[in-house]
Amino acid sequence: MLELRYNPLTDEWIIVSAETQKRPVQPSQQSCPICVGGVELPEEYDLVSFENRFPALKRNPPQVSSESDIFMKERSFGICEVVVYTSKHDVALPGMPLRQIEKLVEMWVDRTVELFSHEFVEYVFIFENRGKEVGASLSHPHGQIYAFPFLPKRILAKVEAFSKWHAQRGSCPVCDVVAEEVKIKKRVVFETGSFVSLVPFYARFPFEVHVYPKRHVTSLPELTSQERAELAKHLKIITLKYDGLYGQEFPYMMMFFQAPMKRLDAELFHLHVEFNPPKRDKDKIKWMASVETGTWAFINPMVPEQAAEMLRKVEVNEL
């Protein structure tokens, strides 16, 4: 079964996909489906993005009909891609050569442009789940892209917040935050000419980091070559600092928030990357429990300024 079901209690679409239940869980390197010679990628490759064998959304989804005007359904149009960062199984973003991450950024740019060109795509969401704590099913370095046929609820909340801020102040909230943060520095983790990585004033997770371009750009393709290279550097530095924090592989959810480009108010949006790591200490997890899941209200047990200081102190080689 593959379909969208409408929830009138929250005005949102839920993706029902029995296919995803079949996904493999943490196979060994010998049986890794995305290593060279694996079931998905028998050929040599450098980077590759391919349509998921167990997708939540499909370019040709099955026909559906609503049960009634209360229980409404839509076809699950969309594309779910697996983005393989490298053919090497035993590295992760922090261990990858910077050049490889630069190529990865270029690949994300191309995927964004191509996926947005499909008529049924309203939003392109690039993400990575690292570690079993956040449900990663393969240890081979990879991320995913969901090309949605609708605007997911949290994206819509962001779009509306940008619009409200602009109506009230005539500016962009990220531009305003960046201008202030680079002045006061206390939450900044890493800064270059075009980007700043920081623990936001409004962090929801203990070691949450946001990567903001200093210039107002709405999406990855708008970044210049120089900015793309700097973004790659920030991704490497932040993930290195995460691994260095407790001397262990640090699980995280990495999410790219680009503008919903087909909306006419897309230019108000400011591209940004969010790292949401679930750890609150070396061996303690900050779970998404009832309050967070049920209300979207977060209780952060870590003062953001303290988290920023801890991450700043983790020394990594400037690349």
Partner: peptide
């Protein structure tokens, strides 16, 4: 115009099951 420093060559392959695979190389 801007010149890209990292240019990738893309090759798209359609597998037998209809899925598209996009291979990128420098």
């Amino acid at each position: 115009f801007e010149q890209s420093e990292t240019r990738l060559r893309k090759q798209t392959v359609e597998r037998e099951d209809g899925r598209y695979f996009h291979f990128y190389r420098e």
